[in-house]
Amino acid sequence: MFKGSTARKSMLLVIMLLLLILSTLIAIGIGSVSVNPVVTLQTLFGYGDDTSSVILWDIRIPRVLLALIVGANLAISGALMQAVVQNPLADPGVTGVSSGAAVAALFIMLAYPGASVYVPIVAIAGGLLAAAMVYMMAWQRATGFQPVRIILSGVAVNAIFGGVIGLLSLLYSDRLPSAIQWMNGSLAGKEMSDVLMILPYSLAGWIIALLSIRQVNVLRLGEQTAHNLGQNMNRVRLMLSLLSVGLAAVSVSMVGLVGFVGLVVPHIARMLIGSDYRYSLPLGILLGAIILLLADMIGRSLFSATQIPAGIVMAMLGGPYFLYLMRKGGA
């Protein structure tokens, strides 16, 4: 519907931005103690009472911000990965970053629960290590980084780490419940310091991603044409992969394994606004943020007794929506 003119595409972006702001306000308000939007705004601008200030600033806002940041990160990460390997089924996990992070995080959470504060840093290390393995395996001197080899190495490395995850779960099955939230991507119990920790890296990633849009766009024309147009394919692939891995690693390390966003949001963005990354990447950022935010909001307010991890909500609600878009004939 908005695939036509530039004006309509820009309008869609503006609408999505407004939706983002609106859903942020609602998300901040909703919870075990609900705060109406007017009070929310008052509190945000420093005119709220003490109770709502504490609830909002210490609990709700960090959580909401984190959802926005992580959602955006994963959406960009997935879009870049799909461009790099020229495969619509790619997601950030292709690079092994999620399973690598999961193994490292699980190991700490299950084997050394006392050291749980180090989970984020260990997860980042594990994720980066796995991605490095995948790219080392994929590299060939004659042909460089071939997409199919990246995917295959990713599958292999993911299989290995999947095995390790299974083994860890079996060995420490008694402690497993503590890790389930993380394994399904949960934003529970996050503080402002967590937000501040990943914000600079994420911001840097977004800026670099937006500046790389031209390179990503050229990849749409296929490897041969991109080469003809003066793109050093190995350099472009490596740079975009690094960016994708980096964004995924900081996200996963903070909130655990969040599926769906990285795979599906880039597709939804393309269906809504077309394949030009000048529009679909910004739209993907907004959509990723909104979707993770809404998923988390639903997850924490659906049952008051149990917080359902955002990853589960997203998969269960987002999946059908994606199927609907697909059937409608978007792509």
């Binding site: 695939k3 749409r220 024309l221 296929g222 041969q224 044409t225 080469h227 003809n228 147009l229 003066g230 793109q231 050093n232 077309g274 394949s275 030009d276 792509a331």
Partner: peptide, 21 residues
């Protein structure tokens, strides 16, 4: 590669482009 791309260009038998370009 960039210098070369100003000197020559290759067109293949079939070239891929996005559906909405």
């Amino acid at each position: 590669v960039k210098e070369i791309s100003r000197l020559m260009c290759m067109v293949s038998q079939s070239n891929s482009s996005p559906h909405d370009m």
